[in-house]
Structure formats: C-alpha cells, structure tokens
C-alpha cells in the first residue's frame, strides 16, 4: 500500500483520502492508549472516590440527623413522662396533705373534747370535794353549835318551858346577828 502511495505522490497525483497511512493508525492508537492509561490510573479513581465520599458524607449526615431527631424525640418523651409523674406526685401529695389535715383536725377535736371532759370532770370533783368539805365543816360546826346550845340550855337549868323557850330565842338571835355581821363583812 505504501509503495502505491509513494508512487502516487511521485506522479504528483492526489492520493485517495480514504486510504490511510499506517503511521497515522499507529500514532492514533499509541496516543490513545497513553491517554487511556493515564485517565484510568489518575483520573477515574479520583473522581469515583470523590463521588463515593460525597455520597457517604450526605448519607452520613442524614443518618446523623435522624439519630439526633430520634434522640430528641426520646428526650421529649422522657421529659413528658417526668412531667406527668411530677403532676401525679403533686396530686398525691395534695391528697395526702388533705387527709393528714383532716386527721389532725379530727385528732385535735378529740383531744379538745377529752380535755373539756376532763376539765368538767375535774370541776365536778372539786365541787364535790368542796361540798364534802363544807358538809364536814358544817357538820362539825353544827355539832359545836348544838353542843353550845345544849350547854346553854343545860346551864340555864331547864326547869320550865318558858325559860327554855327564852334560851332558844336568844340563841337564835345570836346566831342571826353573827350571820348578819358575817354577811356585812362579806359584802
């Protein structure tokens, strides 16, 4: 083929453009091969790594955001739970306090009643004692008076009824004056 081309060139004719030169086939293949290996070795892996890293970064970001969201949701649920617990607790404490208050009031009332009963009892007992004392002292006084009266009666010689009546009258009058002076002293 080459000899044919050289022949054509030598004759000054244009050679058919469809007929190739072997050097051009060879050099196109060689240059292509060099470029191909350069791209395969240095270009494509770098781009693929970049794409993969970017995909991973985006997916990782999404995953991180999702986990954060889940965490926040869990925290919110926990806080809500705590709030509900606290409300429950407060209600319970209020209820308990009311019960305790009622119990305290009831106890105090009971105590007061007991105290009043005790005071009343005490008063009654005191009154009874004083009455007893009065009775006792009265009894002693009456005895003394009676003895005095009896002594007078006996001393005046109880001969006649008239004298006897006079003695009694006088005795009673003494008593009344004594009572009157006593009363005036009190008043």
């Amino acid at each position: 083929m080459k000899s044919l081309l050289i022949l054509a060139a030598a004759e000054g004719e244009e050679h058919n453009p469809l007929i190739p030169l072997w050097e051009e086939i060879a050099i196109s293949l060689v240059v292509f091969a060099i470029l191909f290996f350069a791209i395969k070795k240095f270009v494509a892996p770098n781009f693929e790594t970049t794409f993969a890293e970017r995909t991973q970064a985006i997916e990782g970001g999404i995953a991180a955001a999702e986990s954060k969201q889940a965490e926040a949701d869990a925290k919110l649920a926990e806080l809500e739970q705590q709030l509900a617990d606290a409300r429950h607790e407060a209600a319970r404490i209020r209820e308990e306090a009311r019960e305790q208050g009622a119990a305290i009031v009831a106890e105090l009332r009971e105590q007061a009643q007991a105290e009043s009963a005790r005071i009343v009892e005490h008063g009654k007992a005191q009154i009874e004692a004083e009455r007893q004392q009065a009775v006792t002292s009265l009894r002693a006084e009456v005895g003394t008076l009676a003895t005095g009266l009896a002594g007078r009666i006996v001393g005046e010689s109880l001969e006649d009824d008239e004298r006897q009546a006079r003695v009694v009258e006088r005795f009673l009058a003494e008593l009344e004056t004594a009572d009157a002076s006593d009363a005036g002293k009190d008043a």
Binding site: P17, I19, E23, I25, A26, I27, S28, L29
Partner: peptide, 13 residues
C-alpha cells in the same frame, strides 16, 4: 480525524 488513518485506528480499536 479528517485523516482517515486516525479514524480507522480508533474504530478498529
């Protein structure tokens, strides 16, 4: 690639 040989090279490859 107006040189036929170049185009033949790539097409053959």
């Amino acid at each position: 690639f107006s040189r036929a040989g170049m185009a033949y090279g790539l097409a053959g490859m």
